[in-house]
Computed example of a mutant assay.
Amino acid sequence: MAHWGAPLAPRSGVSGADVAISESFLQTQSQLRDNLARRVRQLRRGSRMSQRDLADRAGVRQALISQIELGEANVTLDSLLKIAIALQVDLQALFAANAPARPLGAVTPPRHLP
């Protein structure tokens, strides 16, 4: 299995346009992961939380928080929503450097049921 950042090898029958689209996709994917990594770390530290604190509040594994902050995670939308709620930000704030750090309305972290 190829690593997410590994270049795609052209196959027979694959046009140059397909390869260009794939390279563009990989570049965009890399930029999104880098932005997400930077913002999650920034928001977590700004909230004075450790990775473990954030993981516990979001109901995800600490290893996932670490992978996100290293730009290595292929994170699900569900996990991103949990992390945003735990950080008390809306989802777009996880990706945009100029997004508000805190929403106007209060967001309550999800409760863990026994």
Results as ranks from 00 to 15, higher is better:
Asn98Ser: 15
His3Ser: 15
Ala55Tyr: 02
Gln31Arg: 06
Gly46Ser: 12
Val19Ser: 09
Leu94Cys: 12
Leu104Thr: 05
Asn74Tyr: 10
Ala84Asp: 09
Ser79Leu: 03
Arg41Ser: 04
Arg38Phe: 06
Arg39Ala: 04
Asp56Phe: 08
Trp4Met: 12
Glu72Lys: 08
Ala106Cys: 11
Ala37Ser: 14
Glu72Asn: 13
Ala101Tyr: 07
Leu91Ser: 09
Arg41Ile: 00
Val75Asp: 09
Arg45Glu: 08
Ala2Phe: 07
Gly5Ser: 15
Ser15His: 10
Asp53Phe: 05
Arg48Cys: 09
Pro114Glu: 11
Pro110Lys: 05
Ala101Asn: 15
Ser50Met: 08
Asp90Leu: 02
Leu80Arg: 06
Leu77Thr: 02
Leu70Ser: 15
Phe95Lys: 02
Leu36Asp: 06
Ser30Thr: 05
Arg39Lys: 04
Ala6Thr: 08
Leu77Ala: 13
Ala84Leu: 06
Lys82Met: 11
Arg52Trp: 01
Gly5Pro: 00
Thr108Met: 15
Ile83Glu: 04
Gln42Trp: 05
Pro114Arg: 12
Gly59Arg: 03
Pro103Glu: 07
Leu26Pro: 02
Phe95Glu: 02
Thr28Met: 09
Gln67Thr: 01
Ser12Val: 06
Arg61Lys: 15
Ser22His: 05
Leu8Cys: 05
Ala17His: 10
Thr76Ala: 15
Gly5Arg: 11
Gln42Ile: 00
Trp4Ile: 07
Ala17Val: 00
Met1Trp: 13
Gly59Met: 05
Leu8Arg: 05
Leu8Phe: 05
Pro114Ala: 07
Arg45Gly: 05
Ala37Gly: 14
Val40Pro: 10
Ser50Trp: 00
Leu81Asp: 04
Gln92Val: 01
Ala93Pro: 15
Pro7His: 07
Met1Thr: 10
Ala106Trp: 02
Leu87Ser: 06
Gln92Cys: 14
Ile65Lys: 09
Gln51Asp: 03
Leu77Val: 09
Ile68Ala: 13
Arg52Ala: 13
Gln92Ala: 09
Ala17Phe: 08
Leu91Ala: 14
Ala101Asp: 15
Ile21Phe: 14
Leu77Pro: 10
Ala58Gly: 09
Thr108Ser: 15
Gly71Pro: 12
Arg45Lys: 10
His3Arg: 06
Glu69Thr: 01
Leu36Ile: 03
Arg52Ser: 11
Leu32Gln: 11
Leu8His: 03
Arg33Tyr: 04
Ser22Gln: 06
Ala99Leu: 01
Gln67Phe: 10
Arg11Trp: 13
Asp90Tyr: 00
Ala17Tyr: 11
Ala101Trp: 10
Ile68Glu: 09
Arg44Ser: 08
Ile65Phe: 08
Asn74Asp: 13
Ser47Lys: 04
Arg102Trp: 04
Glu23Ser: 12
Ala63Tyr: 03
Gln67Val: 06
Ser47Gln: 00
Leu104Cys: 09
Leu32His: 08
Glu69Leu: 01
Val14Ser: 13
Trp4Ser: 14
Pro114Ile: 03
Asp34Met: 12
Arg33Leu: 01
Gln27Leu: 12
Ala6Arg: 10
Asp90Lys: 06
Arg44Asp: 10
Arg38Ser: 07
Val19Lys: 12
Gln88Cys: 08
Asn98Gln: 14
Leu94Arg: 09
Val40Arg: 04
Trp4Gln: 13
Ala58Glu: 00
Ser24Cys: 11
Gly46Ala: 02
Ala20Lys: 11
Ser15Met: 10
Gly46Tyr: 03
Leu54Pro: 06
Ile83Phe: 10
Ser47Asp: 05
Val107Phe: 11
Arg102Cys: 12
Leu64Thr: 03
Leu91Tyr: 14
Ile83Thr: 02
Gln51Gly: 12
Pro7Gly: 05
